[in-house]
């Protein structure tokens, strides 16, 4: 069995302590929470941090609540907690859809929302789901906190705006009453990373779409989203032909790469097809609300 190289290990007891440890160990330190992305990389020796800062005891990052019209999701919330939350189910069906197809139930018990986003895998499901919801990320550092739109959080594969010495603290998502949302993913097998996936948020007033969010993953959509397709939807009727056109526009902004999950033309096709399906499901849910 593969095993990691040597490293130093520190258990953080508070956010300031974690930040102090990050400062002390410098850029070769990594934060570990669930560890389900980082530890396999370390076993394969694709990652060899000199120190691990364990933040699993930081309960102040494990909150999940609605405050000030926003859902606040602490970075340390486990996937399983998000999936089981009635609060999330009530307002954000898309997150339930997405969590249900992230890895597997046992991994979800350990893996965290913040860990997934900070790993910044170009196929991350939550990146697309939170992008569709137009969430904000709150990043904490020695100089205090800053808020970054999730759509600008990822700077490229495995890169985020979180600087050495900083921590992702929470995600904040506006609660939109009457909105519907959904997430659609094609995977080769349950538990696999997506071949492609799309999330959608839709708000309908007086029979017309007044707000739309589209998230895409595994297809190299800039910012995990498709703003032009979102703009197209505004003011139109929530009907299949409109969703299909939005899907086409979403597919057009993707730049997928061929790999063993599929060729580029297939992934681009899926981006459109899954956007259409997610929009349709989101609209249906909005209507049911």
């Amino acid at each position: 069995m593969q095993v990691p190289a040597r490293f130093e290990y520190e258990k953080a007891t508070s956010v300031p302590h974690a930040l102090a440890l990050l400062e002390r160990y410098g850029p070769d330190a990594r934060v570990v929470a669930g560890g389900h992305s980082l530890i396999p990389m370390m076993k394969l020796r694709l990652a060899q941090p000199e120190a691990l800062i364990d933040i699993n005891d930081l309960r102040e990052l494990a909150h999940l609540r609605v405050e000030g019209g926003e859902l606040a999701v602490g970075a340390l919330v486990r996937h399983a907690e998000l999936l089981a939350s009635p609060l999330v189910a009530e307002h954000f069906a898309i997150l339930i859809d997405a969590e249900r197809v992230i890895a597997d139930p046992v991994v979800r018990n350990r893996g965290t929302v913040g860990g997934s986003l900070c790993q910044a895998d170009p196929s991350e499901d939550l990146a697309a789901a939170f992008a569709a919801l137009k969430a904000d990320a709150v990043v904490t550092g020695p100089g205090g906190s800053r808020t970054v739109p999730l759509r600008g959080f990822h700077q490229g594969p495995y890169e985020t705006v979180v600087e050495p010495g900083e921590l992702l603290a929470e995600l904040r998502v506006p609660v939109r009453h009457g909105a519907g949302s959904a997430y659609e993913k094609v995977e080769r097998r349950v538990g696999d990373w997506p071949v492609a996936a799309a999330g959608a948020l839709i708000l309908i007033e007086d029979g017309l779409i007044t707000e739309a969010g589209i998230g895409l993953t595994a297809v190299s959509a800039p910012g995990f989203t498709a703003p032009e397709a979102e703009d197209y939807l505004i003011g139109r009727e929530p009907v299949d032909a409109v969703f299909a056109e939005a899907g086409r526009r979403a597919a057009a902004v993707c730049n997928p790469h061929a790999d063993q999950r599929g060729p580029a033309d297939y992934k681009r096709h899926l981006a459109g097809e899954l956007t259409r399906r997610a929009l349709r499901k989101a609209a249906r849910r909005a209507a049911e609300d």
Partner: peptide, 15 residues
């Protein structure tokens, strides 16, 4: 009381 994959957890994290 919650199942986890022990190949992806450090012993020190179980302290």
């Amino acid at each position: 009381a919650v199942p986890v994959k022990s190949c992806t957890m450090l012993a020190v994290m179980a302290d």
